[in-house]
Amino acid sequence: MAGHSSAVAARTGNNPFLRAVAAISTLAGWCSATMIVAAVAITCQMIFVRWVLNASTVWQTEAVIYLVISATLIGLPYVQRLRGHVNVDLIPLSLPPRARFALAILTSALSIVIISIMLWYGYEYWHFAWDRGWRSDTVWGVRLWIPYLALPIGFGLLLLQLVADLVAVLTGADKPFGLE
């Protein structure tokens, strides 16, 4: 049976680093959930303002979009910790333990590399927008570095959780791919 086990978190054992990362990821998860709730509230407020008060709604759409994007990016480490990012472990399942261990290290390393790339260029993009004082081209005119900040933060925290997951497998605190 393949990944996506329901609400089973990655194991941390007694390793202080793993526990610290787990705590940070959980905090990120709370932030993410809060942003989703805020998006619900703002959308309902927008419908109320438009339908009941028949007034202008200029900032809500944009605010909601940025909240959902931020919720997604900042929620990444938490979902990684919960093993909620769906995967196909057809090959790992068919491998003997040692080969499975090696494959787990390889896929972890590849994930860490790609997320590092996303973090680096995400930071650059954020910095570019900050440096040039970009705003969105709407009446509200949000300073774009604010929503873009979710890129470096989200990928940075995801990177941390991925490293923690690799450490957990290397130290034996967790099984490769979480498979028994």
Partner: peptide
């Protein structure tokens, strides 16, 4: 909220 966040983030990341 946890369950919804988990599923939503997974889908949105994909």
């Amino acid at each position: 909220l946890r369950d919804s966040t988990k599923e939503s983030v997974m889908i949105l990341f994909i």
